[in-house]
Design a protein around this nucleic acid. Structure first.
Length: 557
DNA sequence: CGCCAAACTTAGGAGCTTGCCA
DNA sequence: TGGCAAGCTCCTAAGTTTGGCG
């Protein structure tokens, strides 16, 4: 891998290969069929360093610590030790014995000089450099993750049956490596060890695969994948949005199709129709069935009777835990036929029974493919998110004007973004100091308001030829007007900040920006409104979406 | 078909750095 | 000049989709 010699050489190479400007070649690539590459060269994956015993020397338990460990060992198989309260109390006392070391360690790390920290990072980057890039058909490409996951405690979300189980240390013997048939097999970075298997699968884009054998069935392992700004990921991303645009083009006939479907005499068809209606209208996930060893969450097809309330006036309330055990709670009006069908699906069932008992995700996707080539349920989320953003820009356009500041325009963008996040139910945990912080900001707002009022009063006085004696206040009408204008602008900014703070309390805007909204909508809007794109996209997104940067200002999704 | 594995995208939170204000 | 919120990247869990197999 000659090209991986220095960071500068890499940057130059990466800059040089703009795949989106070489569409002809990209077209040719399709002739390769299912194959994603002919040559693939890389250095494999690195490993989490072996555990460093505390302070580099073996840590003997103090007699006190050892004795306490023994106490627990004596009762560990008794019912007593299974009681949550017992475990909680014991754990607390136990951890107190050890956490002094950890907090000391943390403190030492924190107190290193800025220079020292910087040097450490630079050295790490230098070490990682050869692992960070691969060669795909001769082109240098960035890799996203180059180290296997460290051993530790599994942190499942929500009520996960496996939460707290141990994740074992991944060794080269757990790793399968995918390289080109003519390319060198990467050297195993751990002496005395060797890779589990070397394969050459050009239909896959992953470089390494590793699996913790200890975790159960639903764990299908992890991959070393290309970075988001690589050609292959970029092409896939663009294809995703093009497919969503195709859905937009066909949406009328698709709507007619599922409307007809839910009017069928066949319950299977009714369920397919209603499910598609809900996925289209509410941007729900498809909802695959889940295993015993996974958290109990649902999506559209796996909704249970207890997750829906059929209300008056064609309203329904959906209340369920979705992906990541995030709660979805929404009361909406649906079409009369949908309401009627849902009522019949609920009829005679128990709360834990499936609402759509005759279908599943796979059948639903089969149905979607009858209507549009390549259509699957997730495309509706991409389509809905992108259309929502575009519509928000249009509907709210009168809220901003050319003379507005960049900050105000950016706030406007966020307002539109929030509607998308709401649609997709992208929630986050509120900052634990949120209320306190908001109060402080509101106080600042009040002060700014008072300042404006004060200046307004002073202006009135000055116009009558009078003046206050306060030396802080302007002495002429002109000066006062300038000051007032400034104060009003400051007040408006603060009001926007307060609003943003409160509205973003439980909403995560990042997810839709990264995964759902066609970046070309945002970029063309920025061009129209003369907002620098960096104000909307952080550096990683600027890189991820470079393929979309040359879009015209009048792009329509 | 139903079931399962493989391969990929989507997700929230941890934890770091940055930048602002008192 | 240090305290703290905001911004951002990293991490890895948790989804979806497809296709092969009995």
């Amino acid at each position: 891998m000659q090209k991986v010699s220095s960071q500068q050489a890499i940057d130059t190479n990466i800059q040089a290969k703009k795949w989106w400007e070489r569409e002809a070649e990209v077209q040719q690539d399709h002739e390769k069929g299912k194959n994603k590459w002919k040559a693939l060269e890389h250095h494999g994956v690195t490993f989490f360093p072996a555990y460093q015993p505390h302070g580099g020397k073996p840590m003997d338990l103090t007699p006190e610590q050892e004795e306490i460990c023994n106490w627990w060992a004596q009762i560990v198989d008794q019912d007593f030790s299974k009681k949550p309260l017992v475990r909680k109390n014991f754990e607390k006392s136990f951890i107190e014995l050890f956490d002094q070391y950890l907090s000391d360690y943390k403190e030492i790390r924190k107190n290193r000089s800025t220079q020292e920290k910087k040097k450490e990072i630079e050295e790490k980057q230098k070490q990682d450099l050869i692992y960070k890039y691969c060669l795909i058909d001769g082109e240098l490409e960035k890799i996203s993750n180059i180290i296997v996951e460290p051993p530790g405690i599994f942190r499942g979300r929500g009520e996960h049956p496996l939460a707290g189980k141990l994740k074992s240390r991944i060794m080269p013997e757990h790793v399968t490596v995918n390289v080109g048939p003519e390319d060198p097999i990467p050297a195993c970075p751990l002496g005395g060890h060797s890779w589990k298997r070397i394969i050459s699968n050009p239909e896959a884009t992953w470089l390494c695969h590793f699996k913790d054998e200890r975790l159960e069935k639903s764990n299908n392992g992890k991959y070393v994948q290309l970075a988001a700004d690589s050609r292959i990921k970029g092409e896939n991303d663009r294809k995703k949005y093009e497919k969503a645009r195709r859905l937009k083009k066909n949406i009328d006939s698709i709507k007619r199709n599922y409307q007809e479907k839910m009017r069928s005499q066949d319950v299977v068809d009714q369920q397919l129709g209603v499910c598609t209606y809900l996925i289209d209208k509410l941007a729900l996930r498809v909802g695959n069935e889940k295993g015993e060893d996974e958290a109990d969450t649902v999506g559209c097809c796996s909704l249970k009777v207890k997750n829906i309330q059929i209300e008056e006036n064609n309203q329904i309330t959906l209340d369920f835990l979705g992906k990541d055990s995030i709660r979805y709670l929404n009361t909406v009006e649906v079409e009369a036929k949908v309401h009627q069908n849902l009522k019949s699906f609920v009829q005679g069932k128990n709360p834990d029974d499936e609402l759509f008992d005759r279908i599943n995700a796979s059948k639903l996707n089969d149905y979607l493919k009858e209507m549009m080539d390549d259509l699957s349920a997730k495309v509706f989320r991409t389509y809905n998110a992108s259309v929502t953003l575009q519509n928000q820009f249009q509907e709210k356009d009168n809220k901003i004007s050319e003379i507005d500041t960049i900050e105000k325009k950016v706030q406007f963008y966020e307002e539109c973004n929030r509607e998308v996040a709401r649609l997709c139910n992208h929630q986050k945990e509120a900052n634990k100091n949120h209320d306190e912080q908001l109060l402080k900001m509101k106080q600042v707002q009040t002060e700014k308001q008072e300042k404006v009022t004060q200046l307004e009063q002073e202006l009135a006085k000055l116009k009558k030829g009078k003046s206050s004696n306060d030396p802080k206040l302007p002495k002429t009408v002109d000066l006062c007007l300038t000051a007032l204008e400034k104060a009003r602008a400051q007040l408006e900014l603060q009001e926007m900040r307060v609003k943003k703070k409160d509205e973003n309390k439980n909403l995560a805007l990042g997810t839709s920006k990264i995964n759902y909204m066609d970046p070309r909508i945002s970029i063309s809007w920025c061009k129209q409104k003369e907002v620098p794109i960096e104000k909307i996209f952080q550096p990683t997104l600027m890189n991820k979406f470079t393929w979309a940067m040359n879009i015209e200002p009048d792009y329509e999704f």
